[in-house]
């Protein structure tokens, strides 16, 4: 038996199975995971690891385990989307822990959070004076959301009635000398426009461009390979090599 070869084949199976299953399960962000999602993810990863390297048992048994967890996760996702009540039961609900500046200690107790921990979470949100808080809510992913009282909220442009420029998304049009024509046409531009813009910035060849974006205000941001930067920005304090 060639153990290395068997591990290589099993790694390929585990790696691509995991990749396919996670793509099928969607794009839930790590920061948005509930405690259960987090543990479930660790379990799935652990099964995939065992599938790759535990030669004392059949790969099939581990793969079935991995598939089972993926199917059940997908099923739960489907149920929580389709049925609001079951969604609440399975995912939990956000819990209000401060209302009108008053700590709701019963809710804190239900969440099994100590007052000390709670104060730490508030400080983590840059709140050192609890009287500034109108509402504090524990989200299902374990994070604390805080709404400050009106008098402690920062002033915005609309408060001061200052007009603001429209915002939008920047569009990548050149990356490492390659032009993305599809992105150009999305912004209703063409190669002629791009060449004109580059020439205006003293660039004759698109191959000299590392990265270019069309900004929301239709201006072109260009970063060349040649940065023309001296030694001043080198903040290293050791000669190296390392």
């Amino acid at each position: 038996m060639n153990e290395a070869l068997v591990v290589i084949v099993r790694v390929i199976i585990a790696f691509f199975s995991l990749l396919i299953f996670t793509r099928l399960l969607g794009k839930q962000e790590v920061g948005q995971l509930t405690f259960f999602d987090y543990i479930n993810g660790i379990t799935i990863g652990s099964i995939a690891g065992t599938l790759a390297t535990d030669l004392s048992s059949k790969a099939w048994a581990h793969w079935i385990g991995l598939t089972g967890f993926a199917i059940l996760t997908g099923l739960l996702q489907f149920i929580t989307i389709k049925n609001r009540y079951l969604g609440k039961v399975l995912d939990g609900e956000p819990t209000v822990v401060i209302e009108n500046g008053k700590i709701l200690e019963d809710n804190l107790r239900k969440m099994r959070i100590k007052l000390g921990e709670f104060m730490m979470l508030l400080r983590d949100k840059d709140i050192f004076d609890i009287t500034e808080v109108e509402y504090a809510i524990f989200e299902v992913n374990g994070r604390l959301s805080v709404l400050k009282k009106g008098e402690h909220l920062p002033v915005t442009r609309s408060d001061l009635q200052i007009s603001s420029m429209p915002t939008g998304l920047a569009t990548e049009v050149v990356q490492e000398g390659v032009v993305f024509k599809q992105n150009l046409s999305q912004r209703k531009k063409d190669m002629f426009w791009l060449k004109q813009q580059l020439q205006a910035q003293g660039i004759e060849d698109v191959q000299d461009v590392l990265y270019a974006l069309i900004l929301p205000n239709d201006r072109l941001y260009v970063d060349k390979y040649d940065d023309s930067i001296g030694d001043k920005s080198d903040i290293g304090d050791y000669e190296g090599p390392f």
Binding site: M1, L5, L55, S57, K58, A59
Partner: peptide, 15 residues
């Protein structure tokens, strides 16, 4: 036979 079946059976069983 081991060369053929090694990817799908337990190492302990083959040993």
């Amino acid at each position: 036979v081991v060369n053929r079946i090694q990817f799908s059976v337990e190492k302990d069983n083959m040993e």
